[in-house]
């Protein structure tokens, strides 16, 4: 146990300046007209056994970050340091070594399981990767995995269409666990589920973390869920991290105007309390149109000329609390009560 607490301080994943630009092609010859900066210089760290929450609205690049880390997409720039090795430039063959240490749980429980494979076969793919050649042993392991996620062992020879969304999500988690990973990237694992089922899956994830010492990168747009599950939270907007802070601190003392408006948007269970949105009712501006300065411009209520003229940097405003806003760094954001 001692070694475990020692390792707890270790950083399992460090991402530095990660970038991914998608070309926007137009016209008859499909010329590249602009670049959509899906991920534009994202950096963060995840500590062993801890959970980092990545929050942001739809289209801000959260899922792209997940796919970049897993190398399902090639990054354009930046480092992905996993357990001390930069995997961002590794060829697929060398990547094989690290594949099983990082797994993903998907948002859509319907698309994430192969409809033509029984649940058992889907999970056994991982056990094969792990090198368990002996069929009875694989079977035994498979049953254990199913029990771990709260499914009965009989579900192994059934097809995904026979299960509900929550059950499928459990199967997806069992598949991710099959290769005994150290880090699981949860890409909005509960946002497609019922509220009651959401709680079950979140508790399952939490329990698995306690038992197996897993680290999570938990991607969500639901701040309540993230606040419950995560140790640190990164708030993302248009491909950049706007604020990075320990969970309690972010909820108690949000600094960035975007974070403030996100927190204000959490529905209040008290009737009559209408949320103060702080946001003009505008859609996310097209990120393929290049802008200079703060990427939040156009939606920020506290915008000034300096925001459009100066590049933003992540400034430290507290212990492990960073914010990408010069006003917040100078404490010029009016407090909301």
């Amino acid at each position: 146990m001692n070694s475990k607490t020692n390792r707890a301080n270790h950083i399992i994943l460090r991402v530095e300046g990660l970038k991914k630009y998608f070309p926007v092609r137009r016209g008859f010859f499909q010329k590249i007209a602009a670049w959509n900066k899906a991920v534009d210089g994202v950096s963060f760290e995840i500590q062993q056994g801890k959970t980092l929450g990545l929050v942001g609205e739809s289209g801000c690049g959260k899922t792209t970050v997940a796919r970049l880390i897993l190398k399902l997409l090639e990054s354009d720039a930046g480092k992905i340091v996993f357990r001390g090795t930069d995997i961002s430039k590794l060829a697929e063959n060398d990547m094989k070594l690290y594949r099983k240490d990082m797994q993903i749980v998907f948002q859509d429980p319907y698309g994430s399981l192969n409809p033509r494979m029984t649940v058992g076969l889907s999970i056994e793919e991982g056990l094969r990767i792990l090198g368990i050649k002996n069929a009875p042993k694989r079977k035994e392991r498979l049953e254990k995995l199913l029990q771990m996620v709260g499914m009965s062992p009989e579900s192994a020879d059934r097809y995904p269409h026979e299960f509900s969304g929550g059950q499928r999500q459990r199967i997806g988690i069992a598949r991710a666990l099959s290769v005994e990973p150290l880090l699981i990237i949860c890409d909005e694992p509960v946002s497609a589920l019922d509220v009651s089922i959401q709680a079950q899956i979140i508790n399952l994830l939490k329990d698995l973390q306690d038992r197996l010492g897993l680290s999570y990168l938990f991607i969500s747009h639901d701040l309540n869920v993230v606040g419950y599950l995560c140790n640190t939270i990164a708030v993302m907007y248009k491909g950049c991290i706007m604020e990075f802070a320990p969970a309690e601190q972010l909820f108690e003392n949000p600094r960035h105007p975007y974070t403030i408006s996100l927190l204000a948007a959490i529905p209040d269970p008290e009737p009559g309390n209408t949320p103060d949105l702080h946001l003009p009712e505008r859609d996310l501006p097209d990120s393929s149109i290049p802008i200079f300065g703060c990427s939040f411009q156009g939606r920020c209520t506290l915008e000034e000329t300096r925001c459009r003229e100066e590049r933003t940097t992540l400034a430290q405003v507290g212990e492990e609390h960073f914010v990408r806003c010069w006003k917040a760094a100078q404490n010029k954001i009016p407090k909301v009560s």
Binding site: F106, D108, G111, R175
Partner: peptide, 16 residues
């Protein structure tokens, strides 16, 4: 599809 991405993430070979 996600299930193909999951298989890739597990490290399943292209052939498989």
């Amino acid at each position: 599809q996600d299930f193909v991405a999951a298989a890739k993430a597990l490290g399943v070979s292209n052939f498989r």
